[in-house]
Amino acid sequence: MNKATSDRIILTIDVLIISLFTGLALWGALGPEPAIDLARTLQTSSWTNPLGTDALGRDLLSRLGGVIINAVLPVWAAAAFGSLVGWFMAALAVLPISRAASGISIVVGFIMLIVAAVPAGLLAFFGAVLAEQAGIGPILAAIAIVMMALAFVHLRNLHHESAQLGHWVAFSALGGGDRERLVNYGVFGDWQSSITDRLFFSLRAGIVIEASVSWLGYGIQEPAASFGNMIAAHFDQWLRGNFHVLIVIVADLALVTLLPTSLVRACRTLLRNAEFLDRKTKI
């Protein structure tokens, strides 16, 4: 199989994952609220319930759509916000301003380094236990804090590595400003790919953390839907040989976990193809 064919197959899979996610999110936002129907518990696929029903007879499709709205989107927003704040703070920290400011940036950098090493799941769980009530708030806060620290350390490391590069040194020697260098050569230059990867990693990590804490009985709890509490509610089903509900939930969790990677890969493939076509037209 040549590269073009394999690229096309991967792009098709990525587009399929993105479309499935979008459809699920739209269904969660616009579809009907899942109602309890104890006469129709743990049913497999049918026209009325395409993905079957859960242990309380609720439509799984609507429940999973609800997960996107209740859990996935807020977690992504928190992770993205934390990452953006972290990058912004790192950008300020690496720019030489004044002596006092550079002292503060060293202290902030040290704190960020420690926070970045903290296992995010433990921090989120501890936050949720301290809050002593169900809710996504402590988890979102933990995700935002850890992702901010990780983004801070990430951008500082990128700057540290790039500052040694020849064209950075040359730009500086010719009188170029630090901010221009950071923006033009870094954020909108060589770091783009690394920053995108890091952002999508934080989205994936956020989902992992939220699902884990909800599974442990904190975070989002019934009647609101989350991957964690849905798996927890149906976890004993596998012991009875009833795998259907668990497989549907786990498949959807896999879809959401894979989505950030698929999204960035699809964008890169499309951009590469567009660039190739553009070059071909010019020739």
């Binding site: 699902a211 786990v250 969790l253």
Partner: peptide, 19 residues
């Protein structure tokens, strides 16, 4: 070195392994 870790949820792999 710059690539993020390819992490996956235990909640995804655990039930699959058990089942």
């Amino acid at each position: 070195k710059a690539k993020p870790l390819p992490i996956l949820p235990v909640l995804l792999l655990g039930p699959l392994a058990l089942m």
